[in-house]
Design a protein around this nucleic acid. Sequence first.
DNA 1: GACATATTTGGTTATTTGGCCAAACTTGCA
DNA 2: TGCAAGTTTGGCCAAATAACCAAATATGTC
Lengths: 106, 106
Amino acid sequence: MEANRQSRLEARARILKALGHASRLMIVEELADGEKCVAELTQTVGSDMSTVSKHLSLLKSVGLVQDRKEGTQVFYRLLAPCVLGFFQCVENVMDVQVQRQILLAK
Amino acid sequence: MEANRQSRLEARARILKALGHASRLMIVEELADGEKCVAELTQTVGSDMSTVSKHLSLLKSVGLVQDRKEGTQVFYRLLAPCVLGFFQCVENVMDVQVQRQILLAK
DNA sequence: GACATATTTGGTTATTTGGCCAAACTTGCA
DNA sequence: TGCAAGTTTGGCCAAATAACCAAATATGTC
């Protein structure tokens, strides 16, 4: 029955891994304000549109975002706003880590 | 000033990426109950001890855990229990995703 | 149908990751 | 001093990731 725990953790990991990339975090941050199309996101992220599209499809594949077609455009929206709550904690870890490094450097 | 946003997001990503692996999530889960030594964690994770040690040093490098030497053993403890709060949200995303797949299969 | 716009997909390449094994530390103890 | 136990580090290899470009795929318009 350990295989159960394993696969549960792998599923969790897939979602967290999807958030483990600066561009994808930027996308999530942008979508926090409401849905945006690929071109808009490409503009802010600054990579090739194909790259951004792949990031989006990864986020979609784990269920973090949803897409909606409108004419020739595709709008993405954040399906799990609860992830925005992660950032407070993450920011905290970052700050503590910075302090730690400063102490270490002395 | 966009470089600022970029590096902030990269720092965030580093932490989330550290959580994006089943073995490391297992370690975090184990450490939620209190500190454990490498041998104990190796036991539950089931990989080579060297592998577990590397996972631990990654978690440590981003500030998620802390280590403490006691004799020949090294005990690790969770430095950021707030990450445990992520799992509720992640679990939710997982459930919704499962429903989505079921609907899609019909 | 032909063309333009928006997006995705496929191919290629360079980099990173995660695993194991063996070797190197480090600490405690005979 | 020398051995044993616990841990980390380095080397190596296979697989996964992320980037770009070019080509394919809608969709709307003339």
